[in-house]
């Protein structure tokens, strides 16, 4: 178990009154091994971003109430005093967000911003720091790093900003990189570049990556394991190969079939009807039931447990369990 880097157990995030809580993340468990890439997939409102933010302890408490365990290298991050978190963020865990412009200071040159990220956690001479900044910029594939050190964020395109963000995230060689929809705002060509860069980062640093996305295509490109979330719950998790070859949960199947493809000659796309229900409307039973083509009576009463059906492949669905039993 020495290579288990992040182990999340029964993580729940609640808002609202204690008597009638709004559970946006509901008993989520998964783990990432060192140097591996795990994708969390789900639609808006599935709780995927909230899960990532809880790992970084960036969810304001209160109003939120977080329970469960987030074991990072064996240490429970939920027990770490809040004031000690900044030392972990950035140093052990780096992060990239969807909108790089909002995360960069528009009045500071990118060289200074990366240097600052290094300075926060490590002390070294100015010359060595400059070298390190240049190394990082080369690593993330920014052309002409020497010439770009003094440039400001607004002089970069979206893809280049995302590279700068990655350089900041990797400044202290973190063992875990959390990327929340890093390519959603980008063109497909630039998305391909950024994904390639992330793979490159993993190869060179052996950092684990937690990738949050709504696009199964992106997951197929870079991840080894996938967790599919729906309405705050994990409905399926599996190795990438196993999930794409043999998706068990009807939701995952629907997601897979609705991805538009270049080779697809069907006239119509498959669509999952409806949308993720707001958290406050979810009652007993399986939250996917209203949209599910395989729903049964039992689904209205009882939430199916997440159980393994193959080695390393779990799903939470009564229809699957019935089918497997037969």
């Amino acid at each position: 178990m020495s290579d288990r880097l992040l182990d999340i157990r029964d993580l729940s995030v609640e808002f609202g009154p204690v008597a009638r809580p709004l559970r946006v993340v509901d008993r989520v468990s998964f783990s990432i091994d060192a140097g591996k890439t795990l994708g969390i997939v789900g639609e808006s409102g599935s709780g995927k971003s909230m899960t990532a933010l809880s790992v970084l302890r960036l969810v304001p408490e209160p109003p939120a109430r977080i329970s469960g365990q987030i074991l990072f290298d064996g240490r429970d991050l939920l027990k770490v005093p809040r004031r000690n978190m900044p030392a972990i963020r950035g140093k052990d865990i780096g992060m990239i967000f969807q909108e790089p412009m909002a995360s960069l200071n528009p009045l500071m040159s990118i060289g200074d911003q990366i240097a600052e990220a290094i300075m926060l956690h490590e002390s070294m001479s100015a010359d060595r720091r400059r070298e390190r900044v240049l190394d990082l910029l080369r690593l993330v594939g920014l052309p002409d790093p020497e010439g770009r050190l003094g440039a400001y964020p607004d002089q970069f395109s979206g893809g280049m900003r995302q590279r700068v963000m990655a350089a900041i995230a990797m400044a202290c060689n973190p063992r875990l990189l959390i990327a929340d929809e890093p390519t959603t705002a980008l063109d497909v060509t630039i998305q391909a570049q950024v994904l390639e860069m992330m793979l490159d980062i993993r190869r060179r640093f052996n950092s684990a990556i937690l990738l949050i996305t709504h696009d199964l295509g992106v997951v197929a490109e870079v991840c080894e394991r996938v967790v599919v979330m729906y309405a705050g719950k994990v409905v399926e998790d599996a190795d990438v190969g196993s999930l794409f070859a043999n998706a068990l949960h009807p939701y995952t199947q629907g997601l897979l079939r609705s991805v538009p493809s270049l080779t697809d000659t069907r006239k119509r796309l498959y669509q999952i009807p409806g949308s993720v229900p707001p958290a406050r409307t979810i009652k007993a039973g399986c939250p996917f039931r209203p949209r599910c083509p395989a729903r049964m009576d039992r689904c209205a009463v009882e939430m199916p447990p997440l159980v393994p059906y193959a080695p390393g492949h779990r799903a939470a669905c009564w229809a699957v369990s019935k089918e497997m039993a037969e």
Partner: peptide, 18 residues
Amino acid sequence: MSAAPRPDPAARSNRIIL
């Protein structure tokens, strides 16, 4: 076309990255 992510982990390699 090559840049569009495909939901198929087997088709990972062989893309033209501009």
